[in-house]
Nucleic acid binder design. Structure first.
Lengths: 190, 190
DNA sequence: TAAAATCGTTGACCTACATCAAGACTTTTA
DNA sequence: TAAAAGTCTTGATGTAGGTCAACGATTTTA
């Protein structure tokens, strides 16, 4: 289990390393069931988590209280709200698991300590945070495209998403109804 | 002119100060004409600017090449792309002036130097950057609302925007056509 | 394992907004 | 200051996607 995190660190920060023993000290294996929440709007993000196996969705609430998906995550992804985690302020993000999911979790305090302790982990964290920012930009630029275009882009980016995520959840991400997605698929893919 | 910047710093970082002489050393008054660009996609952001008088729009290009406004700025706002400015990487942002505009500009190099030199300016910059991030979140959460709702929210947030910005530009921000905005106004405001 | 809930699909109908066109006004340019 | 360009408005018409309803298939719950 710790090997998966170790591999991910090595992939992102080649040439350096961190001992598995340290990861074992700082990270705790945690199991969540499908439909459980990792994070809810208004709460403070106490943990960050690395997905060993499973998947989740992030969503926001519209002013009318409707859930709007903002993204999905799978194996080897991190979850948690950096802003809330670092500043210990309430988050705006909701994170819910779409499958039974195994995580390695770390508390904010331990995360800070590990950043101090390990140059490698510091570089790894920096790298992830800068690419996360870039990702949110590409999300913005996806605006003003038709639902059909957004769907194609999504499938290009995550070809396997249809095997893991229900159409209802994908529709929410595309900001259309499940009925509209159903018709869109029928008309475009045959 | 420098007093406007000085006031803004004092408002955001009360209790401390910075000498006007230092601002004069580091910032250069610069005049842009209406329709000129401050920043174009693909270029590196060499300067940051503080608006003394005037206004501008930020926009992105959709995949079809259409300009989509992402925001407007007025007196006492900063312009420039932090990511591009700090890392000297190409920006994705376009900034164009909607009126003849007077700025105080500072180069990336001088900005760094001033950050080193002045504790007060460091706090000021930190504060602005953290609130800018919060603003971009609120932009995201405005999604999935109707054009009419987004328009109301915009007018609540910037009541005077109609006196400064054309309906064409506002329509682009709301992601509707100018015709649609015209009809929306007629049906809702009288 | 039976009952209840949820999901994907399809049909009928409706609405918000796009597109195209044209005229009155204002602003910019030569 | 005359001509050109852009802005705002209004009308006619088209369309993507929403809403509501129904039904079989799958999944969840008791």
């Amino acid at each position: 289990m710790y090997d998966k995190l170790l591999d991910h660190i090595r992939q992102n920060v080649p040439g350096t390393g961190i001992e598995k023993q340290i990861l074992k000290e700082y990270f705790t294996p945690t199991l969540f069931e499908k439909k459980e929440h990792f994070l809810k709007q208004g709460y403070i993000c106490k943990f960050a988590g690395f997905v060993i196996e499973g998947c989740y969705r992030n969503y926001m609430l519209s002013t009318k209280g409707k859930e709007v998906n903002t993204g999905f995550g799978f194996e080897n992804w991190w979850l948690g709200d950096v802003g809330s985690f670092v500043n210990q302020t309430p988050t705006l993000i909701n994170t819910q698991f779409l499958e039974d999911t195994t995580l390695l979790t770390i508390t904010a305090k331990n995360h800070l300590e590990l950043l101090e302790k390990s140059q490698c982990f510091r570089e790894y964290t920096n790298k992830l945070r800068s690419t996360a920012t870039a990702a949110s930009v590409s999300k913005l630029s996806g605006l003003s495209e038709s639902a059909s275009t957004r769907y194609k882009v999504l499938l290009e980016k995550y070809p396997k998403i249809q095997q893991r995520v229900s159409q209802k959840q994908i529709a929410s991400f595309l900001q259309i109804t499940p009925e509209a997605l159903c018709r869109l698929r029928k008309s475009e893919i045959p």
